[in-house]
Simulated scan of single mutants.
Amino acid sequence: QYIVRGYRNGVEQVTETVDFPTSATYGSVTYTRNVNYYLGGTLNFSSTAEWKNIDEVRFYWNDNFGMVGTLKSIDFEPAITGTLPVKLLDYKADIQPNGFVKVQWSTTQENNNSHFLIERSVSNSNFTVIGRVEAKGAEANHNDYSFIDEQPVAGTAYYRLIQYDLDGRSESYKILAVEKPLKTLLSIYPNPVTGNGFTVTLGGVITTPVRYTLSNIAGKMISQGTISSQQQFIPLSSALPGGTYILSTSDGQRIKLLRR
């Protein structure tokens, strides 16, 4: 068998599986074999909607024993009939000085464009929609767009842009990875501590527990544990004497804590 996959902007759009007869049609792909399959054959792609605007085709083989291998990947400019709804430029995502993530993109052509959706994932799969930006329309030759993620995840996050036509069709663009340093500790309350503990408040969305260690000024460990939510209460022993203590976290932060 041959496995033929078509991509647009790095996103798989269509897949066809082709067997080894002399000649056959599979969905939108027609295969014509030469003298024997070792010598290869010709693949003809029909003009069905799935294969329009494809800019990369990847070929794979699959034998009778379950072995799968890659034959070739070909990049090319799609032969397009009609006009693409959107021609995208300058698509990027960056951490801002305030810790937010800014997704930016520009268009030089818009036709029948409705809106864009911005999705995010922490695993490069199972994306969740976090924002929507309406299309500015075809009046201008160049449109700039942006979206601010005000609650970015700590660590690596993956962003994906999807464009929707007025008729409901959509096109996904390549996935962008953004690394946000795990500087998540913001505050301790109350400080000084007069009761049986204190509350730690973390910024952003916590996807991985943050380890903490509470030590006295001489470096002796008093307690340790993990923080797994944006606000978490950390208890203190009633026998802990008054003085100065240091709360250290696994992302390299240290905060001075006063006990009265």
Rank of each mutant, 00 (worst) to 15 (best):
G195V: 09
A93Q: 05
Q109V: 08
L117S: 11
S237F: 11
T249P: 07
V35R: 15
P181N: 13
S170E: 11
D94M: 10
Y145A: 04
R33W: 00
N113E: 08
N126S: 14
T107R: 06
T48H: 03
N98Y: 07
A239Y: 11
Q151R: 08
E139L: 15
G225L: 10
T249R: 02
T226K: 07
E110R: 00
Y26H: 06
L214A: 05
Y164E: 12
Y158K: 10
V122Y: 01
V57G: 05
P152T: 08
S229W: 03
N98G: 14
G219S: 06
L236S: 01
D144V: 09
E12H: 01
R120N: 09
I255C: 06
V153P: 00
T81L: 08
V11I: 14
I222A: 07
N36Y: 02
I222Q: 11
N196E: 13
W51K: 09
P209N: 09
T108S: 10
R8P: 01
E16Q: 14
G243E: 08
R160S: 00
S187P: 05
I255S: 05
G69W: 10
T25W: 04
Y91F: 11
P192R: 08
D251Q: 13
T226M: 06
Q96Y: 00
A218V: 15
I188S: 03
I188R: 04
N191D: 01
N111L: 12
T249C: 08
Y2E: 00
V210P: 02
T83V: 03
L186A: 14
S46T: 07
L43H: 04
K136D: 01
A24Q: 09
Y212G: 04
A218F: 12
S229T: 14
P85D: 07
N113L: 12
L43Q: 11
S114Q: 13
T213M: 06
S47M: 03
T70F: 08
S238T: 14
V205I: 11
V205H: 03
T244M: 02
D75M: 03
S238Y: 06
G243D: 06
F59E: 01
A138S: 15
A239C: 06
H142I: 11
A49D: 14
L185H: 07
I95P: 12
L258W: 07
T25L: 10
E77R: 08
V178M: 05
K102H: 03
L89W: 09
Q253W: 03
Y159W: 11
S237A: 14
R58S: 12
R5M: 07
S106Q: 14
N112H: 13
R5F: 01
S121P: 02
S73A: 14
T22S: 08
D75S: 01
E179G: 07
L84I: 02
T15M: 06
S106I: 03
Y245L: 11
L258G: 02
Y91H: 15
N53L: 08
L202E: 13
Y189V: 08
K256E: 04
I206L: 13
K180C: 07
E134T: 02
A93P: 00
P241E: 04
E56I: 02
S28T: 14
L258Y: 08
Q232S: 13
V68N: 03
